[in-house]
Nucleic acid binder design. Sequence first.
DNA 1: CACAGTATTTAAAATCATTTTAAATTTGCA
DNA 2: TGCAAATTTAAAATGATTTTAAATACTGTG
Lengths: 140, 140
Amino acid sequence: MKQYTNIELKAELENAGIRGTAQRIAILGFMRENPVHPTAEVVFEALRDKVGSLSLTTVYNTLKLFVEHGLVSMLTIDDTFRCFDGNVEMHAHLMCRNCKKIIDMPMPREVATFLEEIEDFDADEVQLYVKGICKECKIK
Amino acid sequence: MKQYTNIELKAELENAGIRGTAQRIAILGFMRENPVHPTAEVVFEALRDKVGSLSLTTVYNTLKLFVEHGLVSMLTIDDTFRCFDGNVEMHAHLMCRNCKKIIDMPMPREVATFLEEIEDFDADEVQLYVKGICKECKIK
DNA sequence: CACAGTATTTAAAATCATTTTAAATTTGCA
DNA sequence: TGCAAATTTAAAATGATTTTAAATACTGTG
């Protein structure tokens, strides 16, 4: 898991056209270094003691800002929670209906072709969501 | 657009293992006959004057019940509204970011193969969502 | 066909994740 | 350093959805 310096994170924020504040650096760092799919609440709990000052409101607003600037993506795989992904490369997601764990998968190649063939529509995002029961939950 | 009789709709509900009440028949009929992707609110507004008695609560609870019984599917393409699809055949969806219109598309064939090849996961649902700008909104 | 028990529907209240507001704080720049 | 603009914050508001509890409507049985 690659580690990022504050300098690198700040540069990434500024390249995206937004200021690199302490809160934003911490949130972006968390999203980049943890290959999980956290909700705003989870990000807040993970960082509240590590950042001088941080509020849940800031986490909500910052993640929304990051999505608008293409720094992270938002997953709508489950209607009961909104989560985010620090990996903005195109890939698929599996979600276990039981434990709610989200697993990354490569996107089937044909999906890229499919996107190119769509007419009369300027696509800018694609999400492939698969739901079911994971191995661990099945055993139980 | 195929029309369904109340007899047919009632039979479909009972085959699914639930009672065929007036409200459920009306809601299932609406979902089957209209190739749209309505929210609970939209279904309620469309039916409130056509069904003797109908409440928004019933529409919410009934659509949830239908999803549990596989009669309709729920789309989570947009985190600001939850909508439903009376067509439970596997297919993809495009959504216009501007007008929020949702368009059906055939699912790329390779996605079915992809599902079969997933290991250690019992998949029971797949959704492919594409977001962008539709032709009409692009012109403006 | 009436009755009893169960399922369904309803209006009203509650919930809860997210957004907005407005004030306080921090930042970048002159 | 000091000022204007941006950001963060706590608190309040929002609004879609769910829960509650009472009323209503079914279904099967005698």
